Amino acid sequence: MISPWKKLAISTKELLADEGFLKSIHLVENLVSKILSLALVGVILVSLVDLIIFLYQDLFREPIGFFNKTLIEIFGMFLNILIALELLENITAYLRKHVVQVELVIVTALIAVARKLIIFDFSKATGIDLIGLATASFALSISYWLIRQMNRKHREDRR
């Protein structure tokens, strides 16, 4: 009969072996991804309710058709939800294929930079802020183009 301590030692040794260890890491990655997905769904729903309340207050409590808040602020709220949906898509794509899809990540970053450009307050901007946004936009655009070209070539090679 094997003692409980010996069983624990054998289990620990199997767990720390390469295959067992990688399986454990994979399980942790899946668990974390699922928790992140659930948390992000909660954030999306709360943001959606916030947007609906915001729109209701601006549309129906004030003179009809006149937004007290700027349209830019409303667009920013819409884009926040869109960015959150893209992040959720990144997580679910990871759960499906267990690979981070670079194209999705770059698209999400492009949307985030576009949001920043849309809500950007040019009256408070410095030259370095504008240069930074332009550089980020350009770098992400080039990255997206390169990834699309590589993916297209990869699809053509598989045919």
Rank of each mutant, 00 (worst) to 15 (best):
S47Y: 00
R159S: 13
K69M: 02
A114W: 08
P4F: 07
R96D: 05
L48Y: 11
K97E: 11
Q57W: 01
L130E: 10
S11R: 08
D129C: 08
I83P: 01
E103N: 13
I128T: 11
G132H: 10
D157G: 01
K116V: 04
S3L: 13
M77W: 00
K34R: 14
V41S: 13
K7N: 03
G20C: 06
V41A: 14
G42E: 05
A84I: 01
G132K: 14
K116E: 15
F138T: 15
N68C: 01
F21W: 12
V113Q: 09
F21Y: 14
K23A: 14
K124Y: 03
I106F: 13
L95N: 10
L104F: 12
L82M: 08
E62H: 09
Y56Q: 04
A17H: 13
L87Q: 04
F60C: 06
I2N: 10
K69T: 07
A125V: 04
L36V: 03
R158A: 14
A134F: 15
L59P: 00
L31Q: 09
I44K: 05
I118F: 02
R152M: 10
A139K: 11
A112T: 09
L27H: 10
N80Y: 01
K23M: 05
A112G: 14
E19D: 12
E86C: 07
H154T: 11
N68M: 04
L79W: 03
I2S: 09
R61M: 03
Y56C: 02
K97Y: 10
I44P: 03
S123V: 06
A9W: 08
I118S: 05
S47W: 00
I52C: 04
P63W: 03
S3I: 06
D58M: 01
D121T: 04
I111E: 07
D129N: 11
L110A: 14
L16E: 06
R148T: 03
V46P: 00
